[in-house]
Write a protein that binds this DNA or RNA. Structure first.
Lengths: 210, 210
DNA sequence: TCCGAATATGAATACTGATTCATGTTTCAG
DNA sequence: CTGAAACATGAATCAGTATTCATATTCGGA
């Protein structure tokens, strides 16, 4: 892997490395390929998903793929990045003007579960990133963890939650969301989001103690 | 994938599909290959790990691999199964004669984190099973979830914890362990197991409420 | 209207790596 | 001892598939 083949015809690859279309037609084709890649890779997994599968799903020729992406790895990375952006946006919108941390926790969990049910492919893509693109995987989780951690620290200072190691708590709470998301998306659990959130939120707020 | 090639020379593949060595020498070779596979696949991931890598790590010729395993997929499955057995054993031993659920929770989390720090390769193998061997992945998590669920239900009946949806709680708690395990194994977090457990257990027992 | 840039095509290339196989070597029951 | 079963070898096969490339086609601005 990592052949770093240069060529790129005329289109300039930007500072970020992406190959930018110059026209609306190109833009549309690029989007079609990216979206096809999301579906195909999400379903079959990175290794079983061939460029041929992706381009035929997108309705373009095989070579067209390389007009917009430098390699198979690159589309994948881009999908991971996009997933991160989308989830973060969903979460921040959902918790925007909630002052109390415990309420924000609830709204965040709800938003996360709803998002993930709406984008099951993206969940698998993130998981696979641990193997295909470890850096992107790292960035994805650590970005969340960091935001979570600082939020928890602020809440402790504000007296909204009791003191405790914010980093460990952040990972524990992320784990709850992730696991409940997986139960729904991968295992097809049909428990209504509301009910799941109620149970989980009670656990997070009050613990199991009788 | 799934070529289902038959051949197997003389050795009979048992009902479970495994190819059993007939002599001590064979037994030793088989173990060497399995253990090499664990290291190599754990490090490089399933797709980057070639049969050549595995056999050379094991110190045998490439063809020898196929004396003991029908395919690359098969070693992988076996590793996942073995991982499941090992973790379950570690957990059940750790919680064996602890009557109180909340204490058992703590001992279980400790045992899990210690186990996983001792077998980092196995953690990655389970994760990758979602793509390489979904059935094994399913079995792994659902076996845990089921045990967890029934334990929680019993604890509710015994009045050791407050009532609540046991299945959702089971997945949430598994998520906590998994995430904290990942933080340690994948991200190299050095927080002592004891401290992690203390924070997490307090969260599980008492929640975040001030 | 016309031309160069952009976009599109799909066959050809190139390489990787799982699996097989023909051929030894070792073991052990009788 | 001895021959057949087990075990071991590593070179050859064989298929898949990422990437390239020579060749069209389309489009937007002058």
């Amino acid at each position: 892997m990592a052949k770093a083949a240069r060529k790129t015809g005329t289109r300039t690859d930007q500072s970020n490395g992406q190959i930018q279309p110059k026209t609306a037609r190109g833009e549309a084709t690029r989007k079609a390929i990216l979206s096809a890649a999301e579906r195909v890779i999400g379903e079959r997994g990175f290794n079983e998903a061939s460029i041929g599968h992706i381009t035929s799903e997108a309705g373009v020729a095989q070579g067209t793929f390389y007009i917009y992406f430098k390699s198979k790895d690159e589309v994948f990375s881009e999908l991971v990045l996009e997933m991160g952006r989308l989830v973060r946006r969903a979460l921040s919108e959902a918790t925007q003007n909630i002052e109390n941390r415990l309420d924000a926790e609830k709204a965040g969990l709800t938003a996360f579960l709803e998002f993930i049910r709406a984008h099951p492919d993206l969940y698998r893509i993130i998981q696979e990133a641990l193997f295909v693109d470890p850096e992107a995987y790292h960035a994805y989780y650590h970005t969340f963890a960091e935001g979570y951690r600082s939020g928890l620290e602020a809440a402790v200072k504000a007296g909204q939650i009791k003191p405790g190691d914010a980093d460990t708590r952040a990972w524990a709470l992320m784990g709850i969301s992730r696991s409940l998301g997986e139960r729904a998306v991968i295992w097809g659990d049909k428990t209504p989001v509301e009910d799941v959130v109620e149970t989980a939120h009670d656990l997070i707020v009050n613990g199991l103690k009788p």
